[in-house]
Design a protein around this nucleic acid. Structure first.
Lengths: 139, 139
DNA sequence: CCATTATGTATTGCGCACAATATAATTTTG
DNA sequence: CAAAATTATATTGTGCGCAATACATAATGG
């Protein structure tokens, strides 16, 4: 078997799936005027308000080069605020505005819409998640 | 269950895995001086030389906005050539240079190195690929 | 055969993603 | 306490990824 054939690649479907997922989210998040990475940041903040850039970055595996401009865009939309911590002025603390909090109610139906779009049995989805987590811990 | 909790997201692990995969490829492809998307284009060309931009794009699900600059970078590395088709001057035909052909031998060990890095049983990998293909056909 | 439509690539603009570096503040050490 | 090391964010540069648009060529239908 030719391991360099596209058809025999394992990673290519994963790479493609991730892109297609983000494309699907593009339409699902249109109303919220959020991109998928922005939506992920909002998930993190909806769970716990007032977090440092690095704390958000650790949870999402994103560095400041990605987060700083992204958070500035969220600030411009006026759904988050950026403020230097009093305690440690190196830290920038991100917090939700009222509009940012409210956006959560508009996002409630997004996860189920996504699972519907994938239309795959929940059991199979759990297996999938398990395999992915296993690979992630190895990489 | 709170469907908006990061922990309960199904897509986030997929998104993370795709990124980690690309990161792993970064080190595996360092010798070849290729990025992962560039490597994918080379896989397509190693299978069949002389293909139009659109043909490559269909196989990889990438549009000209992505491929044109990418292919120009491969041209600068002198591993591919870009030439307008005589038959249809709208088409740009991409072909491998001698160096481009030779690069294939250096790439032979990349797929196995990647599978090794993921360190997951082949059987489970096949299940994973099946699930992903199923979701992709739905999205 | 000419106007219309379709096709193929290129360009532009925006938003990630990450490496490398810079900068400033805090902590640790001698 | 001052110098050195560490920590946290910001900045810069490169490379995707995709939508929207432009533009040229080819095909098609009166």
């Amino acid at each position: 078997m030719d391991h360099l054939k596209l058809e025999n690649q394992v990673c290519f479907p994963i790479y493609t799936l991730a892109k297609e997922m983000v494309n699907k989210y593009r339409s699902l998040l249109e109303d919220l005027e959020l991109t998928y990475p922005q939506y992920l940041v909002m998930l993190v903040l909806w769970e716990k308000d007032e977090q440092s850039v690095s704390a958000i970055g650790e949870k999402l595996n994103l560095d400041s080069g990605t987060l700083t401009p992204l958070l500035k865009r969220l600030e411009q939309k006026e759904i988050v605020m950026r403020k230097r911590s009093q305690a440690d002025e190196r830290m920038v603390v991100i917090s939700l505005t009222a509009a940012g909090h409210q956006l959560k109610t508009k996002a409630q139906n997004v996860p189920s819409a996504m699972v519907d779009a994938m239309s795959i049995p929940v059991a199979e989805l759990k297996l999938l998640k398990n395999s992915i987590d296993k690979i992630l811990s190895n990489l």
